[in-house]
Design a protein around this nucleic acid. Structure first.
Lengths: 345, 345
DNA sequence: ATGAAAGCGCTAACAG
DNA sequence: CTGTTAGCGCTTTCAT
């Protein structure tokens, strides 16, 4: 049996309640007894039992992290470890622990969240993705349980606190980068259309095209599970068109790498034959050939802000819904080529 | 206030303890009352409070996962999400939750583990790495707290349950693949020499060389933080030698990608000018140019087994220390070239 | 400034 | 088969 508050009390010759107050650093305890109690705790190697504490004050000092179902290959995406770093940094500072909910299927994820909430395992939740009509988000909203979303909520924009980049603007910028370099035939390769982020990036792409009065062609979209079988086919077709694109806006760095490899197999070189821009700026995008021109969305910062927000919400239930926009940066590296004339770099 | 066991008891007209027994699916409860109680639970939307249960029970149904300090850039390594998948798969099945301990520094990680253990947050722990003289492992061992290690323990080989690949054999095999293709000048680029896995892979490499009576040269080792500044320098020097290597054994796929890019900058092509083999077989290694010849260590399976092992240990404190060796597979792709004569593939 | 006592929600003997 | 009764370790009024 581990050592409890009573043992400490006995050793310090005070009541258990006093020990409790010392732990909470209660002001109305004399410095003297505080010292004595602390000494006893040290000597006995006392550590509070979190469960007992949670039970008594209905607060767990733990945050739940939920990511989308891991059936998704995309989980291998380095995005995850990086947000986690951001989250855990503030969690650690503020003495929160992290619970992570996982599940192979969406169903399992949903159950996991329910258990977190009802089981009183966590005080607040961070959703690592935003999906169209997400049951999890709706559930949390309905329960009025403190949570924040990384990404842009699909509905209830002003009811759910979220931290996001301005993805449409980012996408517009990066598309414009291509346009400024003389590209007129630009295709979009996106991820899961369930994800709001995909939608936003698509919108930014379209915006840029419109603003430059470039045509938006049906043929210039590829979506979703393209990394699996069939994806190769889709990419291939794109370059069989009468007017194949000279520029590609790709939803994610990891995808870009896959696409570049495919293209190479078809004898299409990047950036010589086709320019590529993408998003996220994961570590990887620096060390590939060519280094990727991409949008740095500051993943770490996203996690950081999200963690602060949930904790705010947890501490003050009445905290109004916030929206935090983390700035992005264009990382102009070497996966594009200026086709106006002067060759780049 | 949430709805408790008492409310259910009242609604079902039984004693709280009966409800508790129904939850545990106690055999000595009549099917009839079980049904009645379950119905009441449904209707009231009852969910047990895990903290209360843990307190009464001294069991949390939670597992702790500890990874090395995230200061390490290597955290972006897709290894992590993949083990996590493996772990969470069995955790979910057996109704365990996952706690994750993080920290920027080793010190923080250590503290995190202490809190998990003493605070009674978790029943068992999975260590995601094995390091030479790891304070965390020693601490757990000393406390006799259930844990398993993914990797090979540095000391106490038969006291700590671990799940690992046979990394020395794997490394020998992959090095031999190079040797069989006619390579005689083979260098080794390793990761952190604190990690046991690095040591093992180095040993396998040396073994293969010895067995083929190839010289082991001091100049043919590069280590550690090579991805940061200075790394480029080290790699460059390797190819400035009088007898530059024609083959490279690299400790990790992610590193390989970095190295390939550097080499390309120096005008050295893979596999034409130098052959590369590495380890892990992360998703990425399929989609790069060239696709990497690598060892598939079955990361998912590693996680899976580890989870089963801790849970075994948790359920039965007396469970003896086990060692589980997950088989590896050589993935012969296209980053090597046969230099005996016939060009490969 | 400190102690006594009740109770958080659940489980686990012990009765019956 | 089910009810009664103590706690699990901590916090928190309410006294003093």
């Amino acid at each position: 049996m581990a050592i409890t508050i009573k043992d400490v009390a006995k050793a310090a010759k005070v009541a258990p309640s006093t020990v409790s107050r010392v732990i909470a650093d209660h002001p109305r305890i004399s410095e003297d007894t505080k010292k004595r109690v602390r000494k006893a705790m040290k000597e006995l190697g006392y550590h509070p039992n979190v469960n007992a504490r949670s039970l008594a004050n209905r607060s767990t000092q733990a945050l739940g992290i939920v990511m989308k179902s891991s059936a998704d290959k995309a989980l291998q995406n380095p995005f995850f470890p990086e947000v986690l770093r951001g989250i855990s940094s503030v969690a650690h500072q503020l003495d929160y622990s992290l619970y992570i909910s996982t599940g192979e299927t969406d169903e399992e994820v949903y159950e996991g969240v329910q258990r977190m909430v009802h089981g009183n395992r966590v005080d607040g939740i961070i959703l690592l993705y935003s999906r169209v009509d997400d049951p999890v988000a709706n559930y949390l909203l309905e329960k009025d349980f403190p949570f924040v979303l990384i990404g842009k909520p699909h509905g209830n924009m002003d009811k759910v606190t979220h931290v996001d980049n301005d993805n449409v603007s980012a996408s517009r910028d990066i598309t414009n980068l291509l346009i400024d370099e003389g590209h007129e035939r630009i295709a979009f390769i996106g991820g899961d259309t369930d994800l709001v982020v995909t939608l936003d990036r698509m919108q930014g792409y379209e915006l840029a095209l419109q603003e430059s009065e470039l045509p938006i062609k049906e043929d210039y979209y590829i979506h979703a599970e393209f990394l699996k079988s069939g994806g190769r086919e889709a990419v291939h077709q794109l370059f069989q068109l009468n007017e194949p694109p000279t520029g590609l806006v790709i939803a994610d760095d990891l995808m870009s790498i896959g696409v570049i490899t495919m293209l190479e197999e078809f004898g299409i070189r990047v950036p010589e034959d086709v320019s590529i821009v993408s998003f996220n700026n994961v570590y990887l995008s620096e060390i590939t050939r060519p280094p990727l021109t991409t949008i740095d969305i500051q993943i770490y910062e996203l996690g950081n802000q999200a963690a602060k927000c949930v904790i705010d919400k947890v501490c003050n239930k009445e905290e109004p819904a916030k929206r935090i926009i983390v700035p992005y940066h264009v990382m102009d590296r070497s996966s594009t080529k200026d086709i106006k004339g002067a060759s780049k770099k």
